[in-house]
């Protein structure tokens, strides 16, 4: 698992940690800038773009999950992150993805679920 390093934040103590609004992975802003979101870079396109990082991620999140085994973990499944890379995820992320991403999701027929736990079913 040589890739693990890039999907886990190098520290958890930083107050700058940001959570992706779409997949809720937590990384440092620098890491987002360097590699983008490991899960949804295709949509978010945050790599090398601090502006995008600012709009697509947030520091306002609550609860930290260390997902070590995404495929088998129920927690990851419940959080709908079992398809994502191993990493640190937020339980709850405040905010919504930018409209362009939302419409892109829409065009792909994917239902957007905000991660702020406002909608539950």
């Amino acid at each position: 698992m040589a890739t693990v390093g890039s999907t886990v934040p190098s520290t958890i103590k930083s107050k700058q940690l940001r959570a992706c609004l779409l997949c809720s992975i937590i990384l440092l802003p620098a890491e987002f800038r360097k590699t983008g979101c490991p899960n949804c870079e295709e949509l978010m396109q945050m790599k090398g773009s601090p502006d995008r990082i600012a709009t697509c991620t947030t520091t306002y999140f609550d609860g930290v999950i260390s997902v070590i085994d995404p495929e088998t973990s129920w927690v990851a499944r419940w959080q709908r992150t079992s398809k994502y890379v191993r990493g640190v995820y937020a339980v709850r992320v405040k905010g919504r993805i930018p409209e362009d991403v939302e419409s892109e999701l829409d065009s792909r027929g994917i239902k957007y679920r905000p991660r702020d736990q406002t909608e539950q079913d």
Binding site: R80, L105, I110
Partner: peptide, 12 residues
């Protein structure tokens, strides 16, 4: 698992 996936929202 190694790189950015195409976001599918498959479990959404």
């Amino acid at each position: 698992q190694q790189r950015a996936v195409c976001y599918t929202g498959d479990m959404n």
